[in-house]
């Protein structure tokens, strides 16, 4: 309960620093658990076919995938439709170039204590939850870009320092 309250307080600033709740991944190409993605920056999105702003967030995530995919950003969009066929119909209309996972029971959403739809979470290369975005507002996109670039920059620096360390 206290965890929820703290999370809630932190969420109001959009900046958090705690380990991202772990869950099983359905795509073996990514790994078996979210924690297997350590070393990558993860953009974790929650969406549903009935959520109107989610259409726009799909366009945006496709662009993010194209821009930062090569630099170590993994986009994982968790679908929360109770009826999976509605999600499939949505994906037909709005093709995604990023990873999709289905959570019809809302178990993962429950772990993340979603406050609205869509919601997205930025997880750094160390597996720490760093930013939460509630809703999809285009006027906040420059900020989101900056946050992603900062986390990718940190990851790059970490890699650089690690390789320097092993050389010594």
């Amino acid at each position: 309960m206290r965890q929820i309250i703290i999370l809630f307080c932190l969420l109001s600033f959009g900046v958090i620093a705690q380990q991202a709740p772990n869950f099983n991944l359905s795509d073996p190409a990514l790994g078996s658990r979210l924690s297997d993605l350590k070393g990558k920056v993860v953009y974790l999105d929650f969406w549903a076919s009935w959520c109107k702003p989610c259409r726009h967030s799909f366009t945006w995530m496709n662009q993010l995938q194209a821009a930062y995919g090569e630099q170590g950003l993994v986009i994982l969009a968790i679908n929360l439709d109770a009826e999976p066929e509605l999600a499939q119909a949505f994906l037909q209309r709005h093709p995604a170039s990023f990873h999709i996972q289905f959570d019809p029971q809302g178990n993962i959403a429950e772990q993340y204590q979603l406050l609205g739809m869509p919601s997205s979470y930025l997880i750094d290369a160390g597996g720490t939850l760093r930013h939460v975005h509630q809703g999809f507002f285009t006027d906040k996109q420059p900020v989101y870009h900056q946050q992603i670039k900062t986390l990718l920059g940190e990851r790059y620096t970490e890699q650089l320092m690690t390789s320097m360390g092993t050389q010594k």
């Binding site: 929650f46 929360l80 979603l114 919601s119």
Partner: peptide, 11 residues
């Protein structure tokens, strides 16, 4: 309801 349970209400 939880935010992800609004499929019917969103119609």
């Amino acid at each position: 309801v939880k935010p992800w349970e609004r499929d019917l209400l969103a119609k």
